[in-house]
Amino acid sequence: MDEILLKGRYRQLAEIGRGERTVTYKAQDTSLNRAIVVKVLRERFATEQDSVDRFQNAARAMAGLSHPNIVAIHDIGSDRDLHYVVTEYVEGQNLESLLASQAPLTPEEALDIAIPVCAALDTTHRAGHVHGQLTPRNILLTRDQQVKVSDFGVVDAPLSAREQSPSLYAAHYLSPEQAMGRRAIPASDVYTLGVILYEMLAGRPPFTGDGFSAIAEKHIREEPDPLSQANPQVPGSLSALVHRALAKTSTARYKTASDLEEALNGYRRQRGKIELLERIGPEERPASSGRHQMDREIRAHPRGVAEEKVPSSRAMQRSGLDWVGCIMGAVALVAILGLIPLWLSVFLRYFA
């Protein structure tokens, strides 16, 4: 795309990305005077009508979706031998750049990114579409910390039929079924997001290798190192969620992106409760925690606590009146007084 007005409207400003099938440019929409992104199908695919149709039809289908975490599509078309898609321009950086400078992320930072991606994937899956090539490069982070996913529908064919020389980078984010040359399904996106979650928390992808085939084989046959081994700061419960998303068979993973989103939100809620209890003092904790406090006191001072809660009779005697003796004396007095009438009648009968 030279320094021309594409379709008499879009002026190229700079190339900002180059993928297996497309070249991406930052451009200026001269009609609306705004920055946009123009994604152009690469020359060797532009001559294949099937590739052109798939590229534009997928973009046309995604243009019907509106979601705050999905990059909006503004226009689709062709100009001479150039086939393009115009999308919104996201000011910020992609996840790949963030990981290059800050990996590993904290669990909270990773969740802040993964949960919106789940929401974007779920919307797409419900509409009958699959991303199929999710990577940190197409997870975009705005300056105000909003997450947006791009490049939906750019790929819609099995890997073996799609590329003659697939990139090593893409191999890190394959699902096992894609690594075997099968078409991507919604569970494939769940697996790939599991890979990205692992990378955010561990600081590296779960599988690496010297070539595309070596990495693809690991996705199919090998289990990743436990997250707790790669990063001991990752809680075990979060590690378990990520490893379930990385299950080799699609039926063993979370069934949908929505299920994964729910699991991540559930972990966050539970973690928040634990952290809250750790921050507040014992006197501010719920009443249900009193029993645990009592148990700790008994374990620490078993005799002292028991004596304080249940005073002995000897201690009671030291503290004041002997109440048992008083009661027994009162009973004896009543019994003696009750005999006075009997003694009086006997005296009057025999001695008067």
Rank of each mutant, 00 (worst) to 15 (best):
342 L>K: 05
79 D>S: 07
56 Q>Y: 03
211 G>E: 02
179 A>G: 15
45 F>H: 05
205 P>E: 05
20 E>C: 05
111 L>H: 13
347 F>V: 11
190 V>S: 03
150 S>P: 05
68 P>L: 06
307 E>Q: 14
52 V>G: 00
271 R>C: 06
151 D>H: 13
144 D>E: 13
112 D>C: 08
89 Y>R: 09
119 A>Q: 14
202 A>N: 04
68 P>D: 13
36 I>N: 00
41 L>G: 05
177 E>T: 08
49 Q>A: 07
278 E>H: 11
149 V>L: 04
258 S>P: 03
144 D>Y: 11
224 P>K: 07
140 L>W: 02
84 Y>M: 02
332 A>S: 07
329 G>W: 11
67 H>C: 06
86 V>T: 04
334 V>M: 14
4 I>H: 12
259 D>V: 07
268 R>S: 01
12 Q>C: 08
64 G>I: 09
78 S>W: 10
76 I>S: 04
80 R>I: 00
241 L>D: 04
104 P>K: 05
177 E>D: 12
151 D>R: 08
312 S>I: 06
42 R>M: 12
138 N>K: 10
128 G>M: 10
41 L>A: 01
43 E>G: 02
126 R>E: 13
239 S>A: 15
19 G>A: 09
345 S>L: 13
275 E>M: 15
233 Q>G: 07
321 L>R: 13
11 R>K: 10
313 S>E: 12
319 S>Q: 11
199 E>Y: 12
130 V>Q: 07
334 V>E: 12
166 P>C: 11
15 E>H: 02
64 G>A: 06
270 Q>L: 15
162 R>F: 10
212 F>Q: 01
58 A>C: 05
280 I>Q: 04
200 M>D: 02
195 V>F: 09
287 A>V: 15
340 I>T: 04
189 D>M: 00
159 L>N: 04
48 E>L: 12
67 H>F: 14
208 T>V: 15
168 L>I: 08
321 L>C: 05
84 Y>T: 05
94 N>V: 04
57 N>R: 15
129 H>S: 03
308 E>H: 14
43 E>L: 07
273 K>D: 09
331 V>E: 03
331 V>A: 14
51 S>G: 03
83 H>E: 06
108 E>F: 15
9 R>M: 05
159 L>F: 10
115 I>R: 06
37 V>I: 11
334 V>C: 12
336 I>W: 12
38 V>Y: 09
60 R>Y: 09
245 A>R: 00
316 M>G: 07
55 F>T: 01
124 T>P: 00
29 D>G: 07
149 V>Y: 01
155 V>G: 01
244 R>D: 01
318 R>E: 11
143 R>G: 11
27 A>F: 06
147 V>L: 03
286 P>G: 07
282 P>S: 15
177 E>W: 14
65 L>M: 11
60 R>Q: 09
40 V>K: 00
170 A>Y: 09
118 C>K: 02
85 V>T: 08
289 S>K: 15
187 A>M: 08
9 R>E: 03
86 V>A: 02
332 A>D: 08
55 F>R: 02
212 F>I: 04
77 G>W: 14
92 G>S: 06
280 I>R: 00
19 G>F: 11
223 E>H: 09
277 L>K: 08
187 A>F: 11
194 G>L: 06
216 A>P: 01
128 G>D: 08
116 P>N: 13
104 P>L: 09
155 V>A: 02
92 G>L: 06
176 P>E: 07
221 R>H: 09
